[in-house]
Design a protein around this nucleic acid. Structure first.
Lengths: 336, 336
DNA sequence: TCTAGCACTCTTCTTTTTCAAGTGCTAACA
DNA sequence: TGTTAGCACTTGAAAAAGAAGAGTGCTAGA
């Protein structure tokens, strides 16, 4: 591909992203100061290379998946934020009260608003968390809340119904033992250490140890096993508005997938370990017309993943610009 | 309306609910042992009363909104659960570990699965909650988690970034003061008592009291003000599958509304104070083809609201049966 | 009071027609 | 050699026309 062909591909992608209509040769004459015939010739080359395709013989061209990929990898120029985009994000960035994860979460909501794509926010996974503290809060005679807090500040709570005889004091004592012995344990190892280290101890000291063990086991193992990284998807309904999803059936299927947290987690997180990854079209596994842009971050130990889910015909440059901006600002803020 | 007309209306509603197709006079001949002409005559009566209507002059009849309403109020017989429905629900009902609110939540998920409608689960509203306990958990040098727990077992947590100088000891001391003085305060009054009762005290004892006050104020006021009753909507995508929503535009609009928690809360909770309420069609405010069945419960002080959102052409009897069953079982369980 | 019969209406599905957009190719031109 | 003008051709989308079927309302007779 020579320069002119690259320019042409770029123009086709960008026009298509804007108009959502197949791009005809005529519409590009002005821009290139060439006749439509010449452009048609060049288009034929791009088509033979697989970068663009046409729906029907007599339709304009649309970028193919590899066309988008080429665009993203070689042609796209990261876009500066517009003033209003920046303004909206800064209201969050400047807020000193927000802890990092909340700030990122809020920014992603705004990005979803600005772009009409869906945002996914995935907190650090539970496996990285270490047990910080467990507490028992009695609610009334036979109800308690068991709280588990990790070193990353993730808190999980669970209520338990007590049978009459279970002794609150023993529960609290056990929580103290756990805090003394297990603080700092990776959260996914806690359950087994609970069984092999804590259970024998309380078995000696307490009558009702089985029941007590049961409660802590439940509170703690739930936390670790059940895919418990807190995942949020915002702006689901917005993506459905994108014009490529005009067909009722497609919309339903997409709505289904966007609601399925396990699936989204799989899409956004489990597939590879790259820091930035753009899954275009079929690669997204969501829908052939959909793109997923994923970004992992690690800001001074706080890590997580964010992603944008939108149409294949996405404003790639803008989205990348927005994500860059947010994560950079967060890093800056953290350094201060 | 005489008995025969009522029977006819019932048959029309129930057939339409099953088939989703306008009901013609012929299709009811067998059931009533009458000729189609007679049925047509009776249908004309029902139509003049406004209980049924037809899309086009030559189409069968469909129930009107007031037809559904009449059906629900006078004709519907609460349905006994089928064995398999009951079986699925019992796996939750029998589970002794689950606290009431979790059990109801899980049951509503199952109901959504069984019926393909959406379930809404609204916890008790914050206003009813009393402050039980606040705690401060230090996460690392300059980060803490502030925990607030209410008498209903609702836990809210928020992270705060500390500036170097804020003294952890003072924070913890303040939390103790709050626990001593404010436990039992309705959650929505806590913020003002914090200002007028606690702030003066810590102002005397602590250097950095402004910052400390700020933290607790944030943690506590967020809890109360921001519409914080935990609302969950499950099975959103399932409702979209209902055949009345075949049009892409309708589906998008519905998806939008179902995602808007504030709106759903308004629909399900804020509009009236009845214990059971069925909003049919336009009344639902969701979509002219949608019905919302709402149920408030108060089981030994644990209260909340659940709702089912589905098509106007809903299996009313079945849904009512399912909700009855769940709430009854919960009550029984609680009494034990 | 019920029923049979018939004309009529209206939707839905299929087929046909028309229209415009855009292509590929050829031949001429700089 | 690269560019352009011109033209035949393909195709889809929209509009128009036609056929089939379901269901009604009405009338007249049992």
């Amino acid at each position: 591909m020579d320069k002119r062909q690259e320019d042409l591909l770029k123009a086709i992608v960008e026009t298509y992203v804007k108009t959502v209509k197949p791009v005809g040769s005529k519409s590009l004459c002005q821009k290139f100061k060439l006749s439509s015939a010449t452009i048609r010739n060049e288009m034929a080359v791009l088509e033979s290379l697989g970068y663009i395709e046409k729906n029907h013989i007599s339709s304009g061209r649309i970028p193919s998946e590899s066309g988008y990929r080429y665009y993203v990898e070689h042609l796209m120029e990261p876009e500066k934020l517009t003033g209003s985009d920046m303004l909206k994000l800064q209201s969050i960035v400047k807020n000193q009260d927000l802890v990092l994860s909340d700030a990122i979460s809020k920014c992603m909501e705004i990005i979803s608003d600005l772009t009409n794509y869906a945002s996914v926010i995935l907190g650090s996974n539970a496996e990285d968390n270490l047990l910080k503290q467990v507490s028992i809060i009695p609610i009334d005679n036979n109800k308690i809340v068991a709280l588990v807090c990790t070193n990353k500040g993730v808190v999980e709570n669970k209520q338990f119904q007590l049978e009459q005889q279970t002794d609150l004091k023993e529960l609290i004592k056990t929580s103290e033992i756990i805090n003394k012995m297990l603080t700092g344990t990776p959260i996914n190892e806690v359950a087994s250490r609970l069984e092999f280290e804590i259970k024998p101890i309380i078995a000696e000291q307490m009558v009702d140890y089985e029941r007590i063990y049961h409660i802590f086991y439940n509170a703690l193992s739930d936390f670790a096993t059940q895919d418990n990284d807190d995942i949020r998807v915002v702006g689901r309904a917005k993506v459905l508005e994108q014009p490529e999803y005009h067909d009722a059936d497609t919309i339903k299927k997409l709505a289904y997938k966007l609601e399925d947290q396990k699936f989204i987690k799989h899409v956004v997180k489990d597939r590879d370990n790259d820091e930035v990854k753009i899954y275009i079209g079929e690669d997204s596994e969501v829908d052939p017309n959909t793109t997923v842009i994923k970004r992992k971050y690690d800001i001074n130990g706080e890590c997580g993943t964010v992603a944008i889910i939108g149409p294949k015909r996405m404003e790639y440059a803008r989205v990348m610009g927005l994500l860059d901006y947010v994560l950079n600002e967060m890093k800056k803020k953290d350094e201060k």
